Amino acid sequence: MEIDKDAVGDVIKRLRRAEGQIRGVIAMLESGRDCAEVVTQLAAVSRALDRAGFKIIATGLRQCVTAEEDGREPSIDVAQLEKLFLSLA
């Protein structure tokens, strides 16, 4: 499955944002910030990574459905997409 170029740009933005958040979490730990604050930021990073993964899967699903509507063979099947989706859950 090849990822749509528009989706790639969106996923990269999300991953760069998560990268910045991770650097922030490291700085929080190094400066001795409160445990609850650190965990809150880690949860935000986790959600950002999940959204990036789901965007990739959604793109694959869209390609699969579009291919079937056009009478073409999808490059990835629904079972593979389901397995990818569940790996993020």
Rank of each mutant, 00 (worst) to 15 (best):
I56R: 07
I56M: 14
C35T: 06
E37D: 12
R33M: 03
S31Y: 01
R47F: 08
G53I: 09
R47V: 11
K55R: 15
A27T: 03
R51I: 13
I57D: 04
V45R: 04
A58D: 13
A52G: 09
L29E: 04
I26S: 10
G60L: 10
R47L: 12
G24N: 07
T59V: 09
M28K: 03
I26D: 10
R47W: 02
Q41K: 06
E37M: 02
L49C: 14
R33S: 08
I56H: 06
A44I: 12
A36L: 14
D50I: 11
C35M: 05
R47T: 12
A43H: 09
V39Q: 07
A36P: 01
G32R: 03
R33I: 00
G60T: 00
S46H: 15
D34C: 09
G60K: 05
R33D: 08
A58N: 11
L42W: 00
A36F: 14
D34W: 03
A48V: 14
A44T: 12
D34L: 03
S31L: 01
V45T: 14
E30N: 11
I56A: 13
T40D: 07
E37P: 03
T59I: 06
R47C: 05
A27I: 00
R51W: 05
I57N: 03
V45Q: 03
A52Q: 09
L29T: 06
S46Q: 15
V39S: 03
E37Y: 00
T40N: 06
V38N: 05
C35K: 09
D34R: 04
G60C: 06
T40F: 05
T40V: 05
L42C: 10
Q41V: 06
R51N: 13
R51Y: 07
V38K: 07
F54V: 12
V25D: 00
V25P: 01
V45C: 15
A43N: 09
A52W: 10
E37C: 00
G53F: 13
K55G: 12
Q41Y: 04
I26Y: 10
Q41H: 09
I56K: 07
A27C: 01
A52D: 09
A48P: 14
E30G: 08
M28N: 01
L29A: 13
V45D: 04
G32L: 04
V38G: 05
G32C: 02
G60Q: 07
D50C: 08
A27R: 11
A58K: 13
A43V: 04
S31T: 03
A44V: 14
R33K: 12
T59Y: 06
D50A: 12
L42D: 04
T59K: 08
D34I: 02
